[in-house]
């Protein structure tokens, strides 16, 4: 297993180095969202009214507009984490586009390979959130920015890991049940749904019940809750849904391992490992 982790880590660091420009575009989007969410209402009403509304909607003790913007930047970064973490397309692209999976399976099993992909999660988490430090310095100062980031980083790492497992689970489920390689279509639908039902911008109590139930099967609302408590209240009380979050993460890992084994068997049985169109 260690050799698979090392290989995946080596490959991903090299790919990241070369594809950094593409990743940066993913980080810029949340910054624009954050600015729009705070300043658009402030432009049509007033900053104090925006603060008041946010306090009312989120129950968060926010003192000024800069603090609100810094906070929104952090919450919005979960979009980047979600986008990258749930990119089931990542491993599907390997299989379908590059077709390296048949070479990879010579050395390891699909379940080991998918789980080894998690090795890169901490690195992905740092790279996809490090921009928060320079972005929040003008708003809350150097010291607060660094402290805020260091507080947030463990959440980002855990979130990235769990979201990646979630992404692989869904991707494998699609391959297993639909026996298709077109996971891109489903993952393209999935990401906006996850974000809509994430509780990042719209409280879960305000979204339709169907979406709310869907939301609780994804890890994003739990991540949001934990991020909110850590960043705003700077405490992890007993109310934190950590137990539930851990339970769900465990189910994802078990499901991913089972599905990967099952998928590998189906791929080999039906000969679609390399002949995707059979």
């Amino acid at each position: 297993m260690w050799s698979v982790v090392m290989a995946v880590l080596y490959r991903d660091t090299r790919v990241l180095k070369r594809r950094m420009y593409a990743m940066i575009s993913l980080y810029i989007i949340p910054i624009i969202f954050s600015l729009a969410i705070v300043y658009a209402p402030a432009a049509v009403t007033s900053p104090s009214q925006v603060l008041q509304r946010f306090r009312l909607l989120t129950n968060l003790p926010i003192e000024n507009l800069s603090e609100l913007l810094a906070l929104m930047l952090y919450f919005s970064s979960i979009i980047s984490i979600t986008a990258i973490g749930t990119s089931t397309a990542y491993w599907v692209a390997e299989d379908d586009v590059h077709e390296v999976l048949y070479s990879v399976l010579k050395y390891t099993t699909l379940s080991r390979y998918v789980l080894a992909e998690l090795a890169v999660a901490p690195l992905q988490a740092v790279i996809s959130t490090i921009y928060l430090v320079p972005a929040t310095i003008p708003l809350i100062g150097v010291v607060k920015s660094v402290i805020m980031y260091l507080t947030y980083l463990p959440i980002a790492v855990v979130a990235m890991s769990v979201l990646m497992i979630y992404g692989y689970t869904i991707g494998l489920l699609i391959v297993r049940l639909l026996r298709t390689s077109e996971v891109w279509i489903v993952s393209n639908w999935l990401l906006p749904l996850i974000l809509l039902a994430s509780g990042i911008y719209i409280p879960l109590s305000l979204i339709p019940a169907v979406l709310r139930y869907f939301a609780y099967t994804t890890p994003v609302p739990y991540i949001m809750e934990i991020a909110k408590l850590v960043l705003v209240f700077r405490s992890l009380s007993t109310q934190v849904p950590i137990v539930l979050f851990t339970f769900i993460a465990t189910i994802y890992v078990i499901a991913t391992t089972y599905l990967a084994r099952s998928c590998e068997y189906v791929l080999k049985r039906e000969g679609i490992l390399c002949l995707r169109r059979m």
Binding site: R11, R14, V15, R18, H98, E99, V100, Y102, S103, C274
Partner: peptide
């Protein structure tokens, strides 16, 4: 022509 990462 397959089996490799094009960006590496």
């Amino acid at each position: 022509s397959r089996g490799f990462y094009p960006y590496l």
